[in-house]
Design a protein around this nucleic acid. Structure first.
Lengths: 348, 348
DNA sequence: GTGAAAGCGCTAACAT
DNA sequence: ATGTTAGCGCTTTCAC
C-alpha cells in the first residue's frame, strides 16, 4: 500500500510538502506541486481518508437521512446530492429510516455521532428537538430539504403555493367546480405537506370568490390507487360532478385520470386533472402538474453546505449565516400538458 | 469531545480495556465490561470511526455502486442493503454512476480506493476487467447484484427463467399467439438482461413446439411509454392479433395494458399481459408478473459480505469461498393477478 | 516555499 | 483478565 512517504521519497520532498501539494492548503511552488502530482500519479497514490480525517478533523463525507428510498422524490434528492458531492470530492453516506423506531434512534445516537460525517442533510424528516440539538452540538452543519426544521436552513417549496398555482390555472380556464384530492391531517407525516397543499387549493378558490365545498374534497394516501378510488367517488356523482380535479401529487392525479377513463369520461374533455411533482410518469400521461425539482434540491443542499464546509476566502462568520437563513425557497413551475383544458360549455 | 481515555479514567481501567469491552474483541470480565459500558453511556462516548479504522484497518463501511438511483429496482436493492448493514453497525456509502464517463472513472480511481470501505456491492454494473481487478487488488470483498461479474460472487436471478415462467403460464392457459415486448441487443446495457429475457420467452415457446414469430416481437426501452407504443403496434394489427403479451418488465407491461384499453380491448378478455419485476404499481394494475425481490437481494448481498468481513469462529478460508461461489441464485416467483386468463374461444 | 516533528484517537501486540 | 506501548497514515504548527 503506497503511502505518503513513498510519494515524498519519489518526489524528493518531505511528506508535509506532499500533503500541501495534494490537498491544496498552504504554499507550494508550482514546480513542486507538479513534481508531487506526477509522483503520486505514477505510484497510484490515494490518501487514506481515515488518516487524513483523523489528523485534520475533516472527513469529506456528508450524511443524508431519508425516510424512504424507493419513492421518486427521495431517491431524486439523494441522486442530486450525490452527484454534487462527488463532483467536490465528497462521499455520501446514506441513512435510511425505513425501519422506524430503533433504527432511527441508533442512527442518531450512534451513526451520525461517530464523527464520520462533516455535515448532514435531512430529507423530509421531522426531527425532534433532541435530534436537532444533538446534531447542532456536534457543530455539524445541517440542512433540511423538503421540510422546515426549526433553526435549520430548510430548502423547501412553499407547498400551498404549488396547489394555489394549479388551482389558479384551472380557474383561469373557466372551471368553477374544482375538486381536491389530498389528505387530511390524519395523513400528515412529513411536515404537514398534505395540509399545506390543501390550504393552497382552498385559498386560490377563496381568492376567486368561491367557497371551498367539502363535498369536493377526498382524502387519499398519495398513491395511484388512492387517487383512483378518490376520483371514482368524486366523478361517479350523477349530478354536479366536478369539472376539474386538483390532486396533491402526480401519482394521485394519474390515478384520477385512470378513474375518469374507467367511468367513460374524457380527460380533459369532461374533466381536467392536475398534479404536483412532475413525476417521471407525468409526461406519459400528459399530466398538467406543478413541477418541483428534487435533484436540483439535493444539489442546492450540497451547495449550501459547502459554503460552510469550505468557505470562500473572504467570508467572515459562515456558521452564523447558515443558521440564520431559515427558509431557502426553491423553484417550482407549472407544466401544462394535455390533462387540463377549458370546461365544456355547460350544455346541461 | 469525550475520548477513550476519558472513559478509561471514569471507569478506572486502561484504554485497551475500554476498547476491548466496547468492541467485543478480546477478553474482558463481565463486571468490567458492564462498568465500562456504563461509563461510556454516562459520558456519551462514541468511538471515532476514523481513529478506529486507522488503527484496525476495518472501516465498518460498505460501498455500493449503482448506475441509477431513481429506478425502482436500484433503490430497492440499496434500501435492502442499507437496512441489513445498519443492523450490523455498518455504514453504507453510495456511489451513483448516473453522471457517466468521468464520474465513473473517479469513483473507481479515487473514491473506492480511499480505503474508506471494507467491501463493495456492485448493482447491475458491468465492470471492466480493470475495474474488477482494481477492486480485487485492494483485497476488498466484492459482490455483484443483478448481474454476473467474472470471478465475483453474483446474486442474480436467471433472467431467461423468469420470462420462460410467464410464457409457460400463458401457454398453459391455452395461448399460442404470444407476443414479446423486450429489447434487442441494441438496448443491452446491464448484462444483456433484455436479451436473456427474450431468450427465455423463445425457449418456452419452442419447448411447447411453437416457433417464435418475429412479427410478434417488438423492441422497447423498458419504460411505460415504450411498452405502450410497442403494444399499440402489436395489438393494432387487424388480423392475427396476439392473444397474449409477455413483457420483459412491469413498466412495459403496464404500458401494454393501457394500450389495449386505448384500442378498446379488454384485459384479460381480449389479451393477456404479463410482466417481470413485481413493481409497486403491478398490484394496482392487477398485473400478472414474475416477482423478483430486490430488497431481499440487497440483504443477501450484505449477508454474503459479512461471512467474509466477520467470519464466524471456526470457518477456515472464507476468502476462498467468496470467489468460488460465482453465481448465487436468488428466488423469483410467478404472481398471478387479473391481467392473464385463458384466451377466448376463437369465435372468429 | 519547505522540512521536522508532534500529535489526531484509537487498536493490537506483548507483557504481566 | 488487564495494562503498556508502539504505531495506523496523515496534517499542521513551528522553524527555517
Amino acid at each position: 500500500m503506497v503511502g505518503i512517504d513513498d510519494v515524498a521519497k519519489h518526489a524528493g520532498v518531505s511528506t508535509a510538502t506532499v500533503s500541501r501539494a495534494l490537498s491544496g492548503r498552504g504554499y507550494v511552488s508550482d514546480a513542486t506541486r507538479a513534481k508531487v502530482s506526477a509522483s503520486a500519479e505514477h505510484l497510484d497514490y490515494v490518501v487514506s481518508s481515515n488518516a487524513s480525517s483523523l489528523a485534520s478533523g475533516r472527513t469529506r463525507n456528508v450524511g443524508i437521512v431519508v425516510p424512504f428510498l424507493s419513492e421518486w422524490y427521495f431517491s431524486s434528492v439523494v441522486e442530486g446530492a450525490e452527484t454534487a458531492l462527488l463532483r467536490r470530492g465528497y462521499d455520501l453516506t446514506l441513512y435510511n429510516l425505513t425501519g422506524g423506531g430503533d433504527d432511527r434512534r441508533s442512527v442518531f445516537e450512534h451513526f451520525l455521532l461517530r464523527r464520520r460525517v462533516d455535515a448532514v442533510i435531512a430529507v423530509s424528516l421531522e426531527l425532534s428537538d433532541d435530534e436537532v440539538s444533538s446534531l447542532h452540538s456536534l457543530g455539524k452543519p445541517l440542512v433540511s430539504v423538503g421540510g422546515v426544521l426549526p433553526g435549520v436552513p430548510s430548502l423547501t417549496v412553499v407547498d400551498s403555493a404549488m396547489t394555489s398555482l394549479s388551482t389558479e390555472h384551472l380557474l383561469s380556464l373557466g372551471h368553477t367546480r374544482i375538486a381536491h384530492i389530498g389528505a387530511d391531517s390524519a395523513f400528515d407525516r412529513d411536515f404537514k405537506v398534505p395540509t399545506y397543499r390543501r390550504k393552497g387549493y382552498e385559498q386560490a378558490l377563496r381568492d376567486a370568490g368561491i367557497t371551498p365545498d367539502p363535498a369536493l374534497f377526498r382524502a387519499a394516501d398519495f398513491t395511484m390507487k388512492g387517487g383512483f378510488r378518490a376520483a371514482k367517488q368524486l366523478l361517479g356523482q350523477p349530478r354536479d360532478r366536478p369539472t376539474a380535479i386538483v390532486a396533491a401529487s402526480d401519482e394521485m392525479a394519474i390515478g384520477s385520470i385512470l378513474a375518469a377513463r374507467d367511468l367513460g369520461l374524457n380527460v380533459p374533455g369532461d374533466v381536467s386533472v392536475s398534479g404536483v411533482d412532475d413525476h417521471q410518469l407525468a409526461d406519459f400521461f400528459g399530466l398538467t402538474t406543478v413541477a418541483q425539482f428534487p435533484k436540483r434540491q439535493g444539489e442546492r443542499a450540497v451547495e449550501l453546505l459547502m459554503e460552510h464546509l469550505e468557505p470562500a476566502p473572504g467570508s467572515a462568520q459562515p456558521a452564523a449565516d447558515l443558521s440564520s437563513a431559515e427558509r431557502v425557497p426553491v423553484p417550482f413551475e407549472l407544466v401544462v400538458r394535455s390533462s387540463t383544458a377549458a370546461p365544456k360549455p355547460s350544455t346541461a
